[in-house]
């Protein structure tokens, strides 16, 4: 090898190979994040303070935070459960084999079909003049708006979020389902276990780390999403990222350091979700290495 690691110069060269990446990560990932974190605890003139964090404790921000948490937890949980069921139905539900490929490709598309176009699609379908709204009205005489359903509301937004949450779960959990070996199931059966017992005692515990990881990912995915909510509801449904968006735009809040605090809160909660995941995973994976 031309680069023998025992020469100091060569060792330096080895590290040189990752410098561009580390520099990029520093400039466009680490420093911006640190800026937000430190900014949340500083006054405009640079001295330390908790005033910004205290500034979060206003009813409107707390309400937005609660709404964001509720939305993210709900769509992450539903996304996990429904995505798992869909993946299970396609991979081991006895359906024709080609459905699997179609579902996987579609999931790849739908999990990336987030943001503005997704909102448009839901408006065109369930909005005031949307296809389903019109069909229900003209054919069945049901006024969707009168039933209390409103697309520009929490359930409407959750319904739209599931459109990318479920496929993301399908994409991630399908390889994990493939990792469940057929002979585990057969071994369990030969030992007298029913299908349900097999799932409870073997399959779900084996899948648990993947499920936890995907839940954390889906949570962060929903918690940070802005475009779908903005295009769907304008700013009428105020969730935390919309508040931050407005703050950055300078529309609502005037204090930039409150913006830091809101941004910090967002990292804080997605960070917590991942910390919980890492801890639980370490416990769930004691049977692997």
């Amino acid at each position: 090898m031309p680069l023998a690691p025992d020469r100091p110069a060569a060792r330096l060269l080895v590290w040189l190979g990752v410098v561009p990446f580390l520099l990029f990560a520093l400039l466009f990932l680490i420093l911006p994040t640190l800026q937000v974190v430190t900014g949340a605890f500083r006054t405009p003139d640079g001295s330390a303070t908790l005033q910004n964090i205290k500034g979060l404790l206003t009813p409107s921000i707390l309400r937005a935070l609660a709404l964001s948490l509720k939305l993210s937890l709900l769509t992450a949980a539903l996304g996990c459960v429904l995505g798992l069921l869909l993946a299970a139905a396609v991979t081991r539900g006895g359906l024709p084999g080609w459905l699997r490929g179609v579902t996987m490709t579609f999931s790849g598309v739908a999990s990336n079909f987030a943001g503005v176009p997704l909102a448009f699609a839901f408006i065109a379908t369930l909005g005031r003049l949307g296809l389903i709204t019109v069909i229900l009205r003209d054919w069945f005489g049901i006024n969707l708006m009168a039933t209390g359903f409103n697309l520009i509301s929490f359930p409407g937004l959750a319904l739209a979020y599931l459109y990318f949450q479920i496929p993301l779960m399908v994409l991630i959990i399908t390889p994990a389902l493939d990792g469940l070996r057929k002979d585990w199931r057969e071994a369990a059966e030969s030992l007298g276990a029913t299908g349900a017992q097999y799932w409870r005692m073997v399959a779900l515990p084996v899948l648990w780390p993947s499920l936890l990881g995907t839940f954390a990912l889906l949570f962060a995915n929903a918690f940070g999403a802005v475009a779908t909510a903005m295009a769907l509801t304008g700013s009428s449904l105020s969730i935390l990222p919309i508040i931050l968006f407005a703050q950055i735009r300078g529309d609502v809040l005037q204090d930039p350091h409150l913006g830091y605090a809101v941004a910090f809160a967002m990292i804080f909660f997605t960070g917590i979700a991942n910390l919980i995941y890492v801890t639980l995973r370490a416990r769930a994976e004691r049977w692997q290495k």
Binding site: E186, M201, V206, W287
Partner: peptide, 27 residues
Amino acid sequence: ANRRRIGMVFQSYALFPNLTVAENVAF
């Protein structure tokens, strides 16, 4: 299969990876 009371050993062992040896035997 689960009501035949037949024991089976597989080529690939098929031990449940999430259970200890004792838990596997006790399954």
